[in-house]
Each structure stands twice: as C-alpha cells, then as structure tokens.
Amino acid sequence: MKKRSEKQHTGWAKPTEFILSLLGYVIGAGNLWRFSYLCFKNGGGAFLIPYVISACFITLPLYMFEVGLGQLTQYGRVAAWDRLPIMKGIGYGALFITVFCMIPFMWAIGWGVLYLALSFTTGPLPWTTGDNEWNTESCSALGVNITNEIVFLQDSLPQVQFWRNYVLRLPNGNPYNKNFNWQMLLASLAAFVTIFAVTVRGVK
C-alpha cells in the first residue's frame, strides 16, 4: 500500500474545467436568490458597503488561501495540513463545516426532487386541487379582480397550501401539519446520496 505522500492526486484535465468549477462554487443560489432579498431587507444600496468590504478583506483572501493550499499540496482539505500536524484541526473543522452547510442545500434540492417525484402521475397534480387532506375548507383556485388586477387569495390557493401544509408542514393550526414529513426526508436523502456518489471518487 502506498503512503499518502506517494499517491497520485487526480486533477482537472483542463484549466477551463477548474475555472468553471470555481464559478459554480461562487455563483450559487445564495448570490442569485438570497442576496437581492437581503439587500432589500437591510437598507438597499447601503448593505453593499459592508458586503463588499467583507468580501474583499475576509472572504476573498480565505478563498484564495484554500485554493492555493490545495494547488500546492495536491491534497484535500484534511490531508493538506499533514505537513503541520498542529494545524490538522483546521482541515477537520473545514470538513465538518462543509458537511454541516450541505444540510440546507440538500433540503432545498429535496424540494425539487419531491415535486419531480409527485409529477409522475396520470391524475391531476396534487398542488392543483383543493380536496386533499392537507387542504382547508377555504381552499380555492379562484382570484379576486380588484382594479383590473388579479389579486389571488394566497392562503386559499391549493399551490400555497400544498407548499405550506404538505411540504413545509408549518405550524399554522392545520392538524395535518403535525404529521412527520417522511416524503421530504426521503427526497433529501436521495439528493444527498446522489451528490455523494458523484463526488466521492474525485473530479474524474
């Protein structure tokens, strides 16, 4: 069995693949989906000032250091610290943070998996009807016409009730929401296993 220092580390076949992987890491759902919401919630343009400062002086240096350390040692984040045994805890800490941060992403991917799985039906989609056990008596697919604009009764829409009562199981007084959402658990586990199977053997 070869020692770790003698093992050949698999790398990217082309520099373009490496750059695209970095772009995929940086341009994520948080920047496209959540960033605009946080800007609006925290003062609009004024929020950009601390964001840019923290990105330039905290995030970017740490990001460049992590990428540079991987390029220099040609190892993963845990094995890269073998040359400094006293610093091994940083690698394990980074690994723990990565796994911990995957949880909300796997949950979000699980939403898509759940909707996709429920789409394979010959009948009406479950979020288009109001006669399901998670729907309330006020469930309706109609809207109210006010000043030539369609204003939907959001709490009564079957799509909204499916999202809140079936997927999220929000504690809003609906008895159905007290049931354990094992479908969402299975969808999240399927997303986690798929991502793990794709990445466990490295970039190749």
Score class of each variant (00 low, 15 high):
residue 144 V to Y: 03
residue 123 G to A: 10
residue 168 L to V: 04
residue 126 P to A: 04
residue 134 W to P: 06
residue 197 A to K: 10
residue 29 A to Y: 02
residue 171 P to C: 11
residue 122 T to Q: 13
residue 161 Q to H: 01
residue 33 W to P: 02
residue 189 L to E: 05
residue 135 N to Q: 08
residue 173 G to I: 10
residue 70 G to H: 07
residue 18 F to S: 05
residue 196 F to D: 14
residue 166 Y to C: 00
residue 179 N to D: 11
residue 127 W to R: 00
residue 179 N to M: 11
residue 128 T to K: 05
residue 192 F to N: 02
residue 203 V to Y: 11
residue 186 L to H: 05
residue 8 Q to W: 12
residue 81 W to I: 01
residue 195 I to L: 08
residue 172 N to Y: 10
residue 149 E to N: 14
residue 68 G to V: 13
residue 136 T to D: 08
residue 140 S to Q: 07
residue 61 P to R: 08
residue 80 A to V: 05
residue 179 N to P: 03
residue 130 G to P: 01
residue 16 T to W: 12
residue 71 Q to Y: 15
residue 97 I to N: 08
residue 51 Y to E: 06
residue 153 L to A: 15
residue 1 M to S: 14
residue 184 M to W: 04
residue 128 T to H: 00
residue 149 E to A: 14
residue 195 I to Q: 07
residue 174 N to I: 08
residue 16 T to L: 14
residue 71 Q to V: 15
residue 108 A to P: 03
residue 202 G to R: 04
residue 110 G to E: 07
residue 54 S to A: 14
residue 125 L to E: 09
residue 184 M to A: 07
residue 86 I to V: 13
residue 143 G to K: 02
residue 92 Y to E: 02
residue 131 D to S: 03
residue 159 Q to D: 08
residue 179 N to C: 12
residue 164 R to W: 03
residue 143 G to V: 04
residue 20 L to N: 09
residue 174 N to T: 11
residue 63 Y to E: 08
residue 129 T to Y: 02
residue 74 Q to F: 06
residue 49 I to H: 06
residue 42 N to D: 10
residue 65 F to M: 15
residue 129 T to S: 00
residue 118 L to H: 09
residue 81 W to V: 00
residue 119 S to K: 12
residue 64 M to W: 08
residue 112 G to R: 00
residue 43 G to Q: 01
residue 116 L to V: 12
residue 49 I to N: 04
residue 163 W to Y: 11
residue 131 D to R: 02
residue 85 P to H: 11
residue 43 G to I: 04
residue 111 W to F: 10
residue 159 Q to N: 07
residue 116 L to K: 12
residue 86 I to G: 15
residue 199 T to P: 03
residue 37 Y to E: 14
residue 106 M to A: 11
residue 189 L to F: 09
residue 100 F to D: 12
residue 147 T to W: 07
residue 94 A to K: 08
residue 21 S to N: 09
residue 16 T to N: 12
